[in-house]
Amino acid sequence: MTASKRVQDLFDLSGQVALVTGGSRGLGLQMAEALGEAGAKIMLSSRKAADLEEAMAHLQDRGIDARWIAADASQEGEARSLVEQTLERLGQIDILVNNAGATWGAPAEDHPLEAWDKVMDLNIRSLFVMAQAVGKLSMIPRKKGRIINVASIAGLGGNPAMMKTIAYNTSKGAAVNFTRALAGEWGAHGITVNAIAPGFFPSKMTKGLLATVGAETMASHAPLNRLGDDEDLKGAVLLFASAAGKHITGQILAVDGGVSALVGG
């Protein structure tokens, strides 16, 4: 009988390369930390160089091999260039974390069309163009890879009355089924495709809502009576990125304190 791997070895990412979009702050930076702490080399990307410089320094202070490239992940040319430059500098891409995203708050009847397009471009178009480029240039030829899309519990159901984010919810619902569809198609290439669906975490994106409604009120909607913190996505992303998750694909993992488990949650 072949000896099974020790659990520590299953989660070890030494020698691997992770490309994280929207990685300069918030949830993206948290996930980059986890992957780097597990041994992966990290390539961060977002649109603002100054934010990326600061994020890279933060990771390097933690002993993580990190670098950055500024790019708009929703634009095909920039996405392909990001992937090509990462391959030139690091040789391969083992893990893609599609985290770049945006939101817009407005009543559905007054939601600007240009804002709808902006949200859709970054939240769902970027998933496709990034996965296509990484798949074609690195993962499919090597017959291996891990793609992790960041969805949201907003993509698992409708809006509560206080939320007016029709484009965001729609885009995250699309991200959920994009994950399932791509997993079905690319499993033959040895590529797993999964999604993390966070609940409410303090972030730049949720700052306005939390200021209006209140953190305690939002936390009270969760069975665990808390919001997410700066550690709560680390285990989920490491599971999907590592050998520990090699038999998991097409799945959506809610990390939300139990909100999505409630009827009408």
Rank of each mutant, 00 (worst) to 15 (best):
S4D: 04
K5F: 13
V7P: 02
G23H: 10
R25T: 09
G28M: 07
Q30A: 03
L35V: 05
A40M: 12
A49P: 11
A49N: 13
A50P: 01
L52H: 05
M56N: 09
A57K: 15
H58A: 05
L59S: 08
R62Y: 01
A70D: 05
E76I: 08
R80S: 03
L82A: 03
V83F: 12
L87C: 03
E88V: 08
L96D: 04
V97A: 01
V97E: 07
G101C: 10
T103I: 13
A106M: 11
D110F: 09
H111E: 11
P112G: 04
A115Y: 09
D121G: 02
L127G: 00
M130H: 04
Q132N: 11
A133Q: 07
V134Y: 05
S138V: 10
I140M: 08
R142F: 11
R142Q: 13
I147A: 01
G155Y: 15
G155S: 10
L156Y: 07
A161H: 12
M162K: 05
M162P: 00
K164Q: 14
K164E: 08
T165C: 04
N169E: 08
S171A: 15
N177G: 00
F178E: 00
A181F: 09
A183Q: 11
G190A: 02
G190P: 02
N194P: 13
P198S: 00
F201P: 05
M205S: 04
K207G: 01
G208C: 00
T212Q: 12
A215R: 06
A215G: 00
E216A: 10
H221L: 10
H221F: 15
L224A: 02
D232F: 05
L233C: 00
V237C: 04
A241V: 07
S242D: 03
A243R: 13
H247N: 10
V259W: 13
G264N: 14
G265Y: 14
G265F: 15
